[in-house]
Design a protein around this nucleic acid. Structure first.
Lengths: 202, 202
DNA sequence: GCCGGAAATAGAACACGTTCTATAAACTTC
DNA sequence: GAAGTTTATAGAACGTGTTCTATTTCCGGC
């Protein structure tokens, strides 16, 4: 409605930040978030601590990210974009969609297990999000699915491939939740994902 | 360690409550939780409000359920048990596992959509749970899976059937999360579940 | 350079989950 | 049925997410 509103929306989306100072502030905030989450998980990402570490005032933090969940999910999107870029520069090995998807899954999963606190923070934020963070959550979900469809084939995905990618993403999310709550071990997660991909792609 | 500890554990598990008064207190608490959740979702389940409505002191509430998440997930288990009992008294129609699983899924999904606030509260609690609520979360996950394996066949399930039931449960959970955040409509959820079951069972 | 509005700052204030304290009531055991 | 222990109660207190206020700094147009 007001001009300040639309400006704020732009800030949230993380695009077209008016000044270089603002882009830097945003980056400092995301970096602080990831650092704190890596060290102590969801609970360690305390808004005052993020603000301190990013060297911004608490009010400024809230101007950029309207809640802790927005902050964490947006940071997750940033991380996923980095992972995707790295993946784009790699040739995924494997002769079939089945093998290539498994390769991608294995790679991401190992990455997550290397940083369990960060994974816990991101997973819990993602699944705890309410409707107000729908856009951010959607962006992450889309990034995930396109990672799988890209692995299945170079061509634009068919509807069936999209559906399969979605199911894999769903299973993956549920298993992350199980892993985070210690109801499943890393091996469990790997096995279940492989089994799922086999059921779907073989 | 101490005798009071083991007594408390029994209270949490919701079994073998020493006295009738305690069983009643527990029931009042769960009922209050479900009522508040039905009216206003996760945020409306405020510990002080639950205690008030259940007519117990705040400290007592915490003696029975050590956190809001434990409280909500335990209440979810109670609800699922009720649903399971009703399901056990019904003959599930359908000539194939595919049809019977779809019937069960449709039925539960419609039930959830009839009470969106309650669903939101339960879903968010379930996925937000941390390791300390692992036992309660596990119980709910197990109830869900056995609902699907029972629909697939009367016999004890094979490993493959168990795996499929798990995948369906995973997809279902992810779709609940999407529905709760308004990223998916009820129709989306129904379609995706049907598609998943088709991919897995047909 | 100067003005006016937007953005940032420091810090108080508030809400709700959780913990703690002191006291009273309800039980067990003899 | 009295003593001792466990459980329940009322309410204060604390931590962290979020909001609000007053003030200062920054930035674009003149």
């Amino acid at each position: 409605m007001s001009p300040s509103k639309s400006r704020t929306d732009a800030l949230m989306a993380g695009e077209e930040l008016s000044s270089a100072a603002q882009r830097e502030r945003r980056k400092r905030i995301v970096d602080a978030t990831i650092a704190l989450a890596s060290k102590g998980g969801f609970d360690a990402v305390q808004m005052r601590a993020v603000a301190d570490r990013a060297d911004v005032a608490l009010g400024t933090l809230y101007r950029y990210f309207p809640s802790k969940v927005h902050l964490l999910v947006s940071s997750l999107a940033v991380e996923l974009e980095r992972a995707q870029e790295k993946m784009d520069r790699t040739t995924v090995p494997g002769d079939s969609a089945y093998e290539r998807v498994l390769f991608v899954l294995g790679r991401i999963t190992r990455g997550l297990q290397r940083n369990p606190h960060l994974t816990e923070a991101m997973t819990r934020a993602f699944t705890f999000a309410d409707a107000s963070a729908g856009a951010e959550v959607d962006r992450v979900a889309w990034l995930m699915e396109s990672m799988f469809t890209k692995a299945m084939s170079d061509e634009p995905p068919t509807d069936e491939q999209k559906a399969i990618a979605r199911v894999i993403g769903d299973v993956w999310l549920s298993n992350l939740v199980a892993w985070v709550t210690r109801r499943a071990t890393a091996t469990d997660v790997a096995n279940r994902l492989e089994l799922t991909v086999r059921l779907l792609l073989k």
